[in-house]
Design a protein around this nucleic acid. Structure first.
Length: 256
DNA sequence: ATGGCTTCATAGTGAAGA
C-alpha cells in the first residue's frame, strides 16, 4: 500500500480554490494539509472538494489562519487544538488516516524578533513540543506537517547572511524546532536532498520567485517508525509559476 | 529604502503576512 501526502499554505482558500482543484487533479495525493484558509467553516467549499474526490475536515477562522485536511479516505479522531492552551487562533488540525496520525500545523509567523507576536510564537512552539511528545506515545506512526515559519538551517535560506537573526531564522526559533525534532522526528526532505537552493516560500515582492530568493519553511516531519517506508520528499514549484499564485509551494512525501 | 506585494477588510494614518 502506497501513500502520497502533501502540505500547502494556500494563502486564502477562496482565492486559490481553482489552483487547488487543478493541482489535486494533476497530483492525486491521498491526503493534503492546507494552511491559511482565511475563511470561516461555514464558507468552506465542501461541494467542490467533494466533487474532486476528497473528504475534508477543517478548522477555520475569519480573515486569518485556518487549517484543513483533505483525504481520499475518511479521517478519524479529529483534534483542533493543543490541550490546556487557550488560543483563539486556528492553527492546529490532527486526524488519523488508517494507522497513521497526521498533525497539520500553521505555526505563528512571529512578525519580528522581540515583538509580542514573536513571544507568542515561542510559547506556541513550547506547547507544540509537549503536545507532540504525548502524541508520539499514543501514535508511533506520526506525520507532522505544515507551514512551520522556520528555516531550520542556513542552507535553507537564499542569503543567510542577510537573514541572520531575523524572524524565521533566529536561533530561539531554530532551537525550538530542533528540540521538537530531537524528541523523535526526522525532517523527511533532508532524507533525500542535502544541497542548498530548495525553498517552499518566496516573497511576493522584489520579483523574489523569478530570482529564486526563497526560504524552506514548510516541512514534513515523520516519526522514526515511518523512516524506512518513506520513499520520497520533494517540493512542487509548479503552482508558484501560475497566475495569481500562493506565495508558498506545496511539499509532498511518499510512503510504501 | 521599515519600502517592495497580496489578501481581507473597510473606505484609514489600514493590518498582517514572511
Amino acid at each position: 500500500m502506497s501513500l502520497k501526502i502533501a502540505s500547502w499554505n494556500v494563502n486564502s482558500l477562496r482565492v486559490r480554490l481553482p489552483h487547488l482543484l487543478t493541482w489535486l487533479t494533476q497530483q492525486q495525493p491521498d491526503m493534503v494539509a492546507l494552511q491559511e484558509l482565511k475563511m470561516e467553516d461555514k464558507d468552506f467549499p465542501i461541494a467542490e472538494i467533494s466533487q474532486a474526490g476528497y473528504h475534508a475536515v477543517f478548522n477555520g477562522q475569519k480573515t486569518y489562519n485556518g487549517v484543513a485536511l483533505l483525504s481520499k479516505q475518511p479521517l478519524e479522531k479529529i483534534e483542533k487544538a493543543f490541550p490546556d492552551f487557550m488560543d483563539e487562533q486556528r492553527r492546529v488540525l490532527a486526524a488519523n488516516l488508517a494507522d497513521v496520525r497526521i498533525i497539520n500545523l500553521y505555526v505563528p509567523n512571529g512578525a519580528s524578533v522581540g515583538s509580542d507576536k514573536y513571544e507568542y510564537k515561542l510559547r506556541w512552539l513550547k506547547q507544540l513540543r509537549d503536545y507532540l511528545k504525548a502524541q508520539l506515545l499514543l501514535y508511533p506512526k506520526l506525520i507532522v506537517l505544515g507551514d512551520f515559519n522556520i528555516a531550520p538551517e542556513d542552507r535553507d535560506v537564499h542569503d543567510s547572511k542577510a537573514w541572520q537573526g531575523n524572524v524565521l531564522v533566529s536561533e530561539p526559533e531554530r532551537i525550538a524546532l530542533r528540540d521538537v525534532i530531537a524528541d523523535g522526528f526526522i525532517d523527511s526532505f533532508r532524507l533525500f536532498e542535502q544541497g542548498i537552493g530548495h525553498y517552499t516560500w518566496w516573497d511576493y515582492r522584489l520579483n523574489a520567485f523569478k530570482r529564486d530568493l526563497g526560504l524552506r519553511i514548510d516541512h514534513i516531519l515523520i516519526s522514526h517508525a515511518l523512516q524506512s517506508s518513506c520513499t520520497a520528499c520533494y517540493i512542487d514549484k509548479t503552482p508558484r509559476t501560475w497566475e495569481r499564485p500562493s506565495d508558498h509551494a506545496p511539499i509532498l512525501a511518499q510512503f510504501n
